[in-house]
Amino acid sequence: MTERREMPIKKGQGWKTLPHGGIIPEGGTAEHFMTGDWRTNRPIHHRDRCIDCMQCWAYCPDMAIIVEDGKVVGIDLEHCKGCGLCVAVCPPKVVALTLTTEAEAKKND
């Protein structure tokens, strides 16, 4: 997990100092919200089968595919919502991503 930036809006901040109209004066602040706990299904990445085609990385709506030096090294489970898109787009001859239930996956955590 890369180091998180500071959130531009602070918990407990009053109306006098908040930006106008509910605007968040910065992009990419979704990283501050741990949407991983919404998950009921969990994608499992199999490094040994992966060909690093980056389909999963391109399609993941939550930017939860972790890539280092051009290689998929894992899934950011703090943000992955378990939608299964990555599993669906992983080439059928490769199947480097599989989907399991969160309950099942937790047994091995």
């Binding site: 109209g21 605007i23 968040i24």
Partner: peptide, 28 residues
């Protein structure tokens, strides 16, 4: 003060503001 096409200063317009921030937005 801030606009969506200012690519050097990206912003989020119209995000969720629930029990924690909606009230402050309205008082402002």
């Amino acid at each position: 003060p801030r606009n969506l096409l200012d690519v050097d200063n990206p912003i989020t317009v119209g995000p969720l503001a629930l029990q924690d921030f909606y009230f402050e937005t309205k008082v402002a």
